[in-house]
Design a protein around this nucleic acid. Structure first.
Length: 862
RNA sequence: GCGGACGUGGCGAAACCGGUAGACGCAGGAGACUUAAAAUCUCCCUCCCUAGGAGUGCGGGUUCGAGUCCCGCCGUCCGCACCA
């Protein structure tokens, strides 16, 4: 009797069982091999979206699979719960950020539970609770004590919309990563973490991360931007100004004899000193500040300079003087804020030299041309031999670099150095909804750390959000505290920590969560590093770099002996959907698509329609409300601004958790984008029903006799799926399961078929656990399929005794032959040549050559 | 501009180490069952035209044999960006 699988009922029932039995709680004391599977924890924005579903389903399949393979699996979940959207909600709706956040967590937790994820909820944490951020404050103080935290006044990226400071990593194309507002430069006193102390090891450490995507490693390497070169001082000729020297950095000391000018940044101390007495210089500096910083502007912006009148003495030839310019293309933030220009071998310097008629001298010869005058408008930056350079002549570039550095160090005017693009991590945020920085400012004692026994510093609840700015700073009493050191009147730090600090150590807290301290070292080390971390590429630099730094910092201060937090990383693709717009407006409107985690939408001109506002008809899509035509636009990332989102919850209501899980695992390779479609989810639902029918119709009582081919297929499928899941290639595992399912359906009843059904159930159970549990119980098995062991593969069942051999003529397939495996090449060749089709094609001519690849093919060259 | 990835049917995609291209799914088509529909099942489904030929973005090359390797283009996407 065929019945339907009632997903709604079964999902709830099995989720309750897993919950009550704490099936997926990880045992710290287990002696089994361990595996820590983690997906990037969500920001509690309100509701889960398809991206979450895809991300967590992938991790879930891996976690469930590893459990079945006999491992003790840690698969926890928590909430990245501090951040701007909660404050925006507070401002818009008058609700306290904590109330809003905790309500969202409750909603999203219920939504995650409905998907049946094998999560260890006993370790759930939310970063906005004092039980978490109090420990974070303790860690901050530990880093402070170790000298890895400092305060300095600096020019910062100020987001005028969010009214806060942003780290360099959070500024994208000159705009705030969250608000999309044009970032301003401001001077502020800020707390910094010394990530640059770890710059070298953060680059070098990438080499050991075998199970990370090359793309992410490369992005981090470029972000850290390590350059090796020479740092040295030019002495000034004469000393009328009192400026004695200018220090520059170069990666090309080999080209020193090709230099024709020195340039300093507009905000370089030398430029400022000159501006004090020279109004023209001051005006030029103002001009430089006005220049834009976007890609397009930089591309078209002319190289401009102002001759200071200063002359720098070439360190290798004291008689040689170079003009010193203030130039708009020199950055104060990089290197020493000053450069020397070698126009022949640097495009920027060449543009500058051509504009100001400076000498362009060739010092690297790319061919035979050794003429000292370099012509043309394209600098030569490639390999070559050093020419026109005295004692360097004839050397290659690398040798010349070494020789110059040795000489500089020997003569004491410079030294070989490494310079990084990476800046220290500014962590102060002028926000309420974040971790309070545990520091007290005292006029007498300076910045004093809060004694650890006074932690956590808890956020005050009575705050208002009716005016912009930081409510902590405006709070009447909170910041007024005595100095812990001298007991005098002092002020609490009112800035809070960047929320990326919260996510820099949550994976450690998951592994070990004592009450009295952030984590227990041996407890944490039992689980760490995370074996498989899964999340979006958008965190390739931000979160993943910070977490790597934080882990190394903890190692540095002896709190943890783990260098790299994430041994394996996988970055999954996005979930996309067609876009629909009314009429023929198209999707050509430019727009800024900010993060989908928040509710801020960019202004949109196109009238977008959501998928449930349109219907597909034979004549194309129409708008349901008006019956008007709908333009189907590009398939893009689901975003609120384009209204092409699909809310997972109603889909789960309609099709059940298993169908949704199966869909997000099917078809698209997990690192690529997954196009969501209505027909796709229906297909997934049909498969769940098909599985159920197959299981229900299995008549175990009458199952007798053998089906050797089917038995072999089960073993082959099992190994295949093991390797697919280990490689996170779920789309391939899905395809194999479809094939096995079809083969079982077609097979006549037998004991092997009955066994195959059982195997199929086990193999699909990590992906569609609810229908698998239901069927497992229906078939009368004891215990949960979640606790069942993965099928054991018999290697003998993987070998084929027969093979199909392709017969090609000139590389084109003409026939196939079935042979016993390992048949002698001579026999195979003879059979191929005797084949009717081959005989006809050869027309009696003898083959010129015959290639036989054993057990694979015969290629006849005619 | 620099760096990287990718390009296979109507669509999402498979294809091990260079060895039968298009597995598996979606959409579509035909049929069966049904009073009918849904569901289900069976078959077809790269293209031109069929004794066959062409075909993995385009043009070359290496090879008995190329989606896979090499050279040169074109296109798409991503990251960085005056980085000295």
């Amino acid at each position: 009797m065929a019945s339907r699988f009632n997903a709604l009922k079964a999902d709830a029932a099995w989720q309750k069982v897993w919950d009550e039995r704490k099936t997926f709680a990880a045992d710290d004391l287990s002696t089994k091999p361990r595996s820590y599977v983690l997906e990037m924890f969500p920001y509690p924005s309100g509701r889960i979206h398809m991206g979450h579903v895809r991300n967590y389903t992938m991790g879930d399949v891996l976690a469930r699979f590893r459990r079945m393979k006999g491992m003790e699996v840690l698969h926890p979940m928590g909430w990245d719960a501090f951040g701007m959207p909660a404050e925006n909600a507070a401002m818009e709706k008058g609700v306290h950020p904590g109330t809003w956040t905790r309500a969202n967590i409750a909603t999203m937790k219920a939504q995650l539970k409905r998907l049946g994820f094998a999560l260890d909820w006993t370790r759930e944490l939310a970063t906005c609770e004092p039980e978490y951020y109090g420990h974070e404050q303790a860690l901050f103080l530990d880093l402070f004590a170790a000298g890895l935290v400092y305060r300095k006044e600096s020019a910062v990226n100020w987001d005028p919309v969010d009214m806060t400071v942003l780290a360099n990593e959070q500024v994208i194309d000159g705009r705030g990563w969250r608000s999309g507002a044009l970032v301003e430069r401001r001077k502020l006193s800020q707390w910094f973490l010394k990530i640059t102390d770890f710059a070298d090891e953060l680059v070098d450490g990438l080499g050991a991360l075998e199970h990370w995507p090359d793309k992410v490693k490369l992005m981090q390497e470029n972000w850290i931007g390590r350059s090796q070169g020479l740092q040295f001082k030019f002495a000034m000729a004469g000393n009328a100004t009192g400026i004695g020297s200018v220090e520059v950095f170069t990666t090309r000391p080999d080209t020193m004899f090709g230099s024709s000018f020195v340039a300093v940044a507009a905000d370089h101390p030398i430029a400022r000193a000159i501006a004090e007495t020279n109004p023209d210089a001051a005006a030029f500096i103002e001009l430089c500040k006005r220049g834009g910083t976007t890609a397009a502007e930089l591309d078209t912006q002319e190289k401009l300079g102002f001759d200071t009148g200063l002359r720098a003495v070439h360190p290798l030839d004291k008689a040689w003087e170079l003009p010193v310019y203030i130039a708009n293309f020199v950055l104060m933030e990089y290197g020493t804020g000053a450069v020397f220009g070698v126009p022949a071998h640097d495009q920027r310097d060449l543009d500058f030299a051509r504009k100001y008629d400076l000498p362009v001298k060739r010092v690297v010869s790319e061919g035979d041309d050794e003429a000292p005058v370099f012509v043309g408008d394209t600098a030569w930056t490639g390999a070559g031999t050093i020419v026109n350079s005295h004692f360097l002549d004839g050397m290659d570039i690398e040798d010349a670099k070494r020789v110059v550095i040795e000489r500089a160090e020997g003569e004491g005017w410079g030294k070989g150095t490494t310079v990084f693009r990476l800046r220290d991590w500014g962590v102060s945020r002028q926000r309420y909804w974040g971790t309070p920085i545990p520091i007290i400012h005292c006029d007498a004692c300076g910045a004093v750390p809060v004694p650890k026994d006074q932690l956590p510093i808890v956020l005050p609840e009575d705050v208002s959000f009716d005016i912009p700015g930081n409510p902590l700073d405006r709070h009447p009493t909170w910041k007024h505290v005595p100095c812990p050191s001298c007991r005098g009147d002092a002020r609490r730090e009112t800035d809070t920590l960047d929320t990326f600090v919260d996510s820099s150590w949550y994976f450690i807290r998951f592994a070990s969560q004592p009450d009295a301290k952030p984590f227990d070292r041996t407890g944490a080390e039992k689980w760490l590093p995370v074996n498989q971390y899964i999340g979006g590429v958008e965190h390739a630099i931000l979160h993943l770099l910070y977490a790597r730094f934080w882990t190394r910092a903890l190692k540095h201060i002896g709190m943890l002996d783990i260098a790299e937090p994430f041994a394996g990383l996988f970055t999954q693709g996005m979930v996309t959907h067609e876009t629909y717009s009314r009429g023929d407006a198209g999707d050509t409107q430019p727009e800024i698509d900010t993060d989908d985690d928040d509710s801020s939408d960019a202004p949109v001109k196109t009238k977008w329609l959501s998928p449930d506002e349109v219907r597909k008809t034979d004549a194309g899509y129409i708008e349901i409300a008006t019956g008007g035509p709908v333009t189907v636009g590009r398939v893009t990332k689901m975003s609120k601004s384009k209204k092409n989102t699909v809310d997972p919850e109603p889909i789960v209501d309609q099709y059940g958790a298993d169908a949704v899980r199966w869909f997000v695992l099917s078809d698209s390779p997990p690192e690529r984008d997954l196009p969501w479609s209505e027909s796709g989810i229906e297909g997934a639902w049909r498969f769940v029903q098909r599985l159920w029918r197959l299981i229900e119709s299995d008549d175990a009582a009458n199952a007798e006799g053998e089906d050797f081919a089917l038995r072999k297929l089960c073993h082959r499928t099992t190994v295949g799926i093991e390797s697919d899941i280990n490689a996170l290639q779920f789309n391939k595992a899905v395809a194999r399961l479809y094939s096995l399912c079809s083969a079982i359906e077609k097979a006549p009843p037998s004991a092997d078929r009955d066994q195959a059904v059982r195997t199929l159930l086990l193999l699909v159970s990590p992906m569609v656990p609810h229908v698998a549990e239901e069927a497992w119980a229906t078939a009368g098995n004891d215990g949960l399929i979640a606790d069942a062991a993965w099928p054991i593969v018999d290697p003998a069942m993987l070998v084929d005794d027969e093979v199909t051999i392709a017969v090609q003529v000139n590389g084109k397939l003409r026939d196939t032959l079935v042979f016993a495996k390992g048949a002698p090449s001579g026999d195979v060749e003879a059979a191929a040549l005797a084949s009717e089709k081959i005989v006809r094609l050869l027309e009696g001519k003898p083959p010129r050559k015959v290639i036989v690849v054993p057990d694979r093919l015969v290629n006849i060259v005619a």
